[in-house]
Simulated scan of single mutants.
Amino acid sequence: MFGRSKPLELNVLVLRDADVIATALRTALAAAAPEERPGLERAAALVEQAAAVPDAALRARWVHERLTAAGHEGPVDSVRAVKTLRESVPGLGLLSAVQLTKDAAAHRP
Score class of each variant (00 low, 15 high):
81 A>C: 08
76 V>P: 00
7 P>Y: 07
60 A>I: 02
108 R>L: 15
50 A>W: 04
29 L>D: 04
29 L>R: 06
79 V>H: 14
63 V>I: 06
9 E>G: 09
84 T>H: 07
61 R>H: 09
105 A>K: 12
43 A>C: 03
16 R>Y: 05
45 A>C: 04
70 A>G: 08
10 L>E: 02
34 P>H: 00
31 A>W: 01
11 N>F: 06
41 E>V: 13
61 R>Y: 00
83 K>E: 15
36 E>A: 10
103 D>H: 14
105 A>T: 12
102 K>C: 12
39 G>W: 04
107 H>S: 13
11 N>L: 13
63 V>D: 00
33 A>M: 02
22 A>Q: 01
68 T>A: 15
5 S>K: 11
73 E>W: 10
36 E>C: 04
60 A>E: 01
19 D>E: 11
25 L>M: 00
7 P>N: 07
2 F>L: 10
38 P>Q: 01
79 V>L: 13
23 T>N: 04
69 A>Y: 03
106 A>F: 09
71 G>P: 07
85 L>M: 09
47 V>C: 05
35 E>A: 10
57 A>S: 15
69 A>P: 01
32 A>M: 00
9 E>P: 01
43 A>P: 01
71 G>H: 06
97 A>E: 05
4 R>L: 09
101 T>S: 12
11 N>T: 13
26 R>N: 12
49 Q>N: 03
108 R>W: 13
92 L>K: 15
35 E>P: 02
46 L>H: 11
26 R>F: 01
102 K>N: 14
21 I>W: 05
11 N>I: 04
8 L>D: 07
96 S>V: 12
19 D>K: 02
109 P>A: 10
1 M>R: 12
18 A>F: 02
59 R>V: 14
75 P>Y: 07
30 A>P: 03
27 T>F: 03
62 W>Q: 05
100 L>E: 08
89 V>G: 11
85 L>K: 04
89 V>P: 07
10 L>W: 04
43 A>I: 02
14 V>Y: 02
18 A>V: 03
94 L>E: 14
100 L>G: 06
61 R>K: 11
36 E>H: 09
17 D>W: 11
69 A>L: 12
30 A>F: 05
66 R>L: 09
101 T>L: 06
76 V>A: 04
101 T>F: 09
40 L>D: 00
9 E>R: 14
90 P>V: 07
81 A>I: 08
7 P>L: 11
55 D>Y: 00
80 R>M: 11
56 A>Q: 14
50 A>H: 04
62 W>P: 03
45 A>S: 08
36 E>I: 05
103 D>G: 15
7 P>E: 15
30 A>E: 13
71 G>N: 03
38 P>K: 05
14 V>H: 08
86 R>C: 04
26 R>D: 07
101 T>P: 04
24 A>D: 06
13 L>M: 10
43 A>T: 03
32 A>L: 02
102 K>L: 14
101 T>G: 10
27 T>Y: 03
15 L>A: 11
17 D>F: 03
57 A>T: 10
40 L>R: 00
47 V>H: 01
91 G>A: 09
56 A>L: 09
108 R>S: 13
44 A>T: 05
71 G>Q: 08
61 R>C: 08
72 H>R: 06
26 R>S: 09
49 Q>S: 10
23 T>W: 07
